[in-house]
Simulated assay, not measured.
Amino acid sequence: MVTRADLVSVFGVKYTFLVPAATLAEIPLPDAPRAELISIGIPSVVRSAVYIDRDIVSGIPTYGDWCESGNLSFSPEAGQLLRIGYWHAGSICLSPSSGAVYYVSPYEATEVELMSSSPAQLSECMMIAHKDGQASDFLPSHEVMAEREAIVEKLLAVDEPAVSPVDSPWRVLAKEVTGPEYRD
């Protein structure tokens, strides 16, 4: 399991957010995910691809409230989730009932896809994608595919249910962070 020290060694203190207990006080979150957010924290960015909102330390809106502020549509299922960040045009959301993390598509209001089984697994997957993605920057092109598969294997070891689907957010992200836009 990832530790605060692990995250700080990769992202730095400034870019590893700890969520104050007071911010989570009114949220009916299970104990384990609550403790992970308070004591381990969550990285703020993965290689200019995944972002966690800085506002997570002062308040976490529901996805429904966030959508309403921008006149966007959303499903009842997605509306109850807590919006903690974004990837592409979609949102990264935390389930207050389970602590699981979901990706909510901006194109299909009903598309809610498991991204990570817990905040700690999200943080560890973010760390792998960031650190190992950077390592692939200097590999010859013919070695990048093997490195991408190695990243996917590490991600599977952290959170198999979230990474297993062939079109999971983490598999797409592994392809992105080892892709030409990061290598050129």
Results as ranks from 00 to 15, higher is better:
Q121D: 11
Y102G: 09
L173I: 09
L94D: 04
P169S: 08
I38A: 08
L82H: 15
L122T: 06
E149T: 00
K14M: 02
D53V: 05
V46H: 03
T178A: 07
I92S: 12
P140A: 13
Y51R: 14
R34L: 07
A120C: 04
A162C: 07
A78E: 14
S73T: 11
R83Q: 11
I52G: 04
S105D: 07
S95L: 08
I60F: 06
I84T: 06
S141H: 12
F74E: 08
L18Y: 02
L81C: 12
P33N: 01
A146T: 11
L82P: 13
Q80E: 14
Q134D: 09
S9A: 15
D137G: 09
K14N: 03
T23A: 15
E143M: 13
V45E: 04
R54M: 12
G90H: 11
A129W: 03
V104C: 14
T16Q: 01
T110N: 09
G133E: 07
A129V: 05
R183A: 09
V19C: 13
C125Q: 15
D6E: 06
G12V: 06
G179T: 02
Y51V: 05
M126I: 09
L18P: 01
R183Y: 11
Y102N: 12
T23F: 08
C67Y: 01
T3Q: 05
E124R: 15
M115K: 05
L139Y: 10
E77M: 06
V19A: 05
V104R: 08
E160V: 04
S168I: 11
V163C: 02
M145N: 00
P33W: 09
E153F: 03
C93G: 04
D167H: 00
V8G: 03
E68Y: 01
E143K: 09
P30A: 05
V144K: 14
I84D: 09
M115D: 00
P43G: 05
H130G: 12
D132M: 10
P180K: 12
C93Q: 02
S98F: 14
I60G: 01
K131L: 15
P43C: 12
D184P: 05
N71C: 11
V13L: 06
S118M: 12
S39D: 02
G70T: 05
I42Q: 10
Y15T: 13
P180I: 09
S136E: 07
S73P: 14
I92M: 04
W66V: 00
L139W: 10
K154T: 03
D6V: 11
S48D: 11
D132C: 01
V45N: 13
V50Y: 04
I52E: 02
E113Q: 15
G85N: 08
E113K: 13
S97E: 14
K154D: 10
S98E: 14
E176A: 11
E124Y: 13
A89P: 01
A78R: 05
D6R: 09
L156K: 06
S118F: 06
A162R: 10
I151L: 02
E176L: 09
Y103I: 02
P106V: 00
Y63V: 08
A5G: 05
P96H: 08
V8M: 04
L94T: 09
Y103T: 00
